[in-house]
Design a binder for these strands. Structure first.
Lengths: 147, 147
DNA sequence: TTGAAAATATTGAATATTCAACAATTGAAG
DNA sequence: CTTCAATTGTTGAATATTCAATATTTTCAA
């Protein structure tokens, strides 16, 4: 009798593990670059999302930057102290808070973006154009299929 | 004059972001399943790695399960309390500690594996056989190219 | 053989995250 | 209208993680 094929498979066969491993590595590299500006990856994400100039509610922002609400609240507190972003109460729904990027935030955001783009280019070089775009495509479709 | 093509790209264009997003989602699903046994994803990884029956040093284990050393030490402390694993000093190099899985750990590991395999199968169904294996292949090669 | 440097694991303090409870506002049913 | 449930964001306590320092053992050059 043959066992179920996956029962004793090494952990490296699991998609969940490969994703965690790849994410950890790429994130570590990005972190290293952003540390030049002393900013964690999450703040890069926040500034990038807000840099469309529009107001974004906390809930919307939490989804976009992959943070839980309380974690986001506290990170935004720090960024407000650093005058990178500011809160405005939503006049249409006073439960909501709209977040905006400040001028200082925009300046920092540009620097961070160029560091992030550096990384993307570095990946393109070592990993290849074809693989990168194919991987992005597959990741997007995995995310889609998970909703 | 045209701007560098990536300068204002949405965050969803970045590989680092897509990886984080996909990882978050898949990890969340796995977490949900493993919560049936009240076990965090990291403990599943630890038990899975140790279930080859061999002794693994803390450093080796930390790499394999994607945890920093101090985090692993503290998680192992908890698992030792739960008698899922145990420490043995490496006789060949007394700086090292070898971790082993206990009988109780093996029993739990089997249950966890089947939950994890359930998830893999669920992904295969909704995402497809072809996409899944291609994604795994690309992730492995990304990890390789990052070392 | 000795002594300095490297490797390994742990600890404690500082920091960050999460969980559950809360406050405020809106929506919607009666 | 009024009231009750749902939505949104924040807070404080509990938990977890990280950073820097430490202790122990091994390695290796002199």
């Amino acid at each position: 009798m043959a066992k179920s094929s996956k029962e004793n498979s090494p952990i490296t066969d699991h998609l969940a593990y490969l994703l965690a491993q790849a994410n950890r590595e790429i994130n570590r590299q990005l972190e290293l670059r952003l540390s030049k500006e002393g900013v964690p990856v999450e703040q890069w994400r926040i500034l990038k999302v807000l840099s469309d100039g529009n107001g974004h509610s906390m809930g919307e922002l939490a989804d976009a930057v992959l943070l839980n609400h309380p974690t986001l609240t506290k990170m935004i507190d720090r960024m407000v102290s650093d005058t990178l972003v500011y809160r405005v109460q939503d006049p249409n729904d006073r439960r909501k808070v709209l977040m905006f990027i400040s001028d200082r935030g925009k300046v920092l955001s540009k620097k961070l973006n160029s560091l992030a783009v550096d990384q993307e280019e570095h990946i393109l070089e070592s990993y290849g154009d074809k693989s990168t775009s194919e991987l992005k495509r597959l990741l997007e479709s995995l995310i889609d299929s998970s909703n």
